[in-house]
Amino acid sequence: MKSIIITGASSGIGRATAELFLEGGWQVGLIARRGEVLEDIANTYDTAIALPADVTDADAMSAAFAAFTSQAGRLDALFNNAGMFGPSAPIDEVPLDQWMQVLNVNVGGMFIAAQLAFAQMRAQTPQGGRIINNGSLSAHVPRPNSVCYTTTKHAVSGLTKTISLDGRACNVACGQIDIGNAETDMVAALKSTQTEMPTMDVRHAAEAVLHMAELPLNANVQSMTVMASQMPYIGRG
């Protein structure tokens, strides 16, 4: 049985992806702060393991990874998904503490999870595994008033490329999925004020992650964009 840890697994893209992997027979470690939600998922699926932790807490994350690998035996994949949007405002109206919070979650938390996964994959036998980082269309083009989120997602692209390069020596593949307007609570909040916003079923995003994860380690989706077709991403919008 293949194994994966998914961060941000209690809702949105993370939960949809976790449920799809569980339906596909994977052993899935569920990381998020809301332990009661993770337990509900774990009570529904025999191969789900609830691992409540804050991705910015390095000690808690280390304990969660250790608990998972002690049960699963190894770690085949990480879906590095947890993130937050932060304040929607021009840069001069963004409080410094909120900037730091988004940076800490979207970059710091992703670094911690990737570091733990890489170390496990490098040490295990047979060596190797796959890290899939959740970027965003904002890793390429921003929305207005999104300086915190957009900056961090550009950082994720750099993280992905360096892990991909460093992983060649130990059979650790790394790719990035950039998802546009999957129907989650975060997108629903945006759509409430932008009623014409095109969206897609979140399951399509989950299926794309599953495709990336199921490839053999001698093949890799380095970068994938999956989005609602009518989004003004291509061209001038």
Rank of each mutant, 00 (worst) to 15 (best):
K2M: 10
G8Q: 08
S11T: 09
G12Q: 09
G14K: 03
R15H: 07
E19G: 10
L20W: 10
F21T: 08
F21L: 15
L22V: 13
L22Q: 02
W26T: 09
L30C: 11
A32W: 00
R34Q: 11
G35N: 09
G35H: 07
G35L: 04
E36W: 02
L38M: 11
I41F: 12
N43F: 01
N43P: 00
T44L: 07
Y45A: 09
I49S: 01
V55I: 15
D57H: 07
A58P: 00
A60E: 00
S62N: 12
S62D: 11
A64K: 01
A66N: 03
A72T: 05
L75I: 09
D76A: 08
A82M: 01
G83C: 10
G83F: 08
A89N: 08
P90H: 09
P90Y: 08
P90K: 12
P90C: 09
I91W: 11
E93F: 07
V94C: 04
L96K: 06
L96M: 13
Q101C: 04
N104V: 01
N104E: 09
N106D: 14
V107D: 00
G109M: 00
Q115A: 14
L116I: 02
A117S: 09
M121C: 01
Q124M: 11
P126A: 08
P126V: 10
I132G: 03
N133P: 07
S136N: 10
S136G: 12
L137S: 01
A139I: 05
H140M: 12
V141P: 00
P142A: 15
R143T: 14
P144L: 03
P144W: 07
S146R: 00
V147Y: 04
Y149D: 00
T152V: 04
T152Q: 06
T152G: 03
A155R: 06
S157V: 09
S157H: 10
I163V: 15
R168G: 04
N171S: 12
D178P: 02
A182H: 12
E183Q: 13
T184E: 01
T184W: 01
D185T: 07
V187W: 02
A189L: 13
L190F: 15
L190G: 04
K191A: 15
K191N: 10
E196G: 10
P198V: 06
P198G: 10
V202P: 06
E207I: 02
L210Y: 13
L210Q: 13
M212I: 14
N220Q: 11
V221F: 02
S223T: 07
T225G: 03
V226A: 09
M227F: 12
Q230N: 14
Y233Q: 03
I234A: 13
I234W: 13
